[in-house]
């Protein structure tokens, strides 16, 4: 049985909500009784997640600032200006070393994975500050803690995203705004941790960067058998 975290009646925005990790967060938050709006660029998938979970889908292209602003504005408006929870997960991947990352791709990753996070966070920070607080959770990746040189630009932007999460935590503390980063390894489920971080159960946890990888990133594993 799922533990209830006392989130019923709260409002959440989940960006990049059509990815596997984020749609699991949408589903979990909806099951907790949270009114969830989520963004994504894949409309058919967004509509299907919406009908499965009860969340509301907002079509959005996070490489387009006007589109992002419209979606965030709608999400905040839907909850009467009082957003309690922000889960950010919007981002794109690119496989390649630094040198193999074309300038246009580097700039796009900067915009979608880092600048968009800053801008969405800034807008939600304002709403949370005006209404007595809230919880921001950035779903990043282990590549933001240690370099994943095969996806170099992604790793660079993810490191920046963790810094954004930490800075919002430090700035938000006087306003009861919490901010944390969650770093799953591909294939792991982060939804339970995201829901816990959204809830008052984690009231003193802010500015933390939490790996969700079963210990894989805790130390280097040197295999001496081969």
């Amino acid at each position: 049985m799922t533990v209830r975290l006392g989130l019923a009646g709260r409002c959440a925005l989940v960006t990049g909500g059509t990815s596997n990790i984020a749609s699991a967060c949408v589903s979990r938050l909806c099951a907790e009784g949270v009114a969830v709006a989520f963004t994504g660029s894949n409309s058919p998938r967004g509509e299907s997640i919406a009908s499965e979970t009860g969340g509301s889908f907002l079509e959005c292209d996070h490489s387009d600032r006007a589109s992002t602003d419209r979606a965030v504005g709608k999400a905040i408006e839907r909850c009467g200006g009082r957003l309690d929870i922000l889960v950010t997960n919007a981002g794109m991947q690119f496989e390649g070393s630094v040198e193999d990352t074309p300038e246009a791709v580097f700039r796009e990753l900067l915009e979608v994975n880092l600048t968009s996070l800053f801008r969405v966070g800034r807008a939600c920070f304002e709403s949370m500050r005006a209404h007595g607080g809230g919880s921001m959770i950035h779903v990043g990746s282990e590549a933001g803690i240690r370099a994943a040189h095969e996806t170099a630009a992604y790793s660079v932007m993810t490191a920046g995203a963790i810094a954004v999460a930490e800075l919002f935590a430090a700035e938000g503390a006087p306003y009861r705004i919490r901010s944390n980063a969650v770093c799953p390894r591909a294939g792991t489920d982060a939804a339970a941790l995201v829901a816990w971080l959204a809830s008052d159960e984690s009231a003193s946890v802010s500015g933390a960067t939490l790996r969700v990888d079963g210990g894989a990133g805790a130390a280097m594993l040197v295999d001496t058998r081969t």
């Binding site: 070393s97 630094v98 880092l114 040189h149 790793s155 932007m157 920046g160 810094a163």
Partner: peptide
């Protein structure tokens, strides 16, 4: 916090250094 964007840019630079060192 007083230099937020600057702090973010430098954290990203440190990761750029790590990735470049490997490649």
């Amino acid at each position: 916090t007083a230099i937020g964007a600057y702090s973010v840019s430098k954290r990203a630079v440190n990761m750029l250094v790590a990735a470049l060192a490997v490649e």
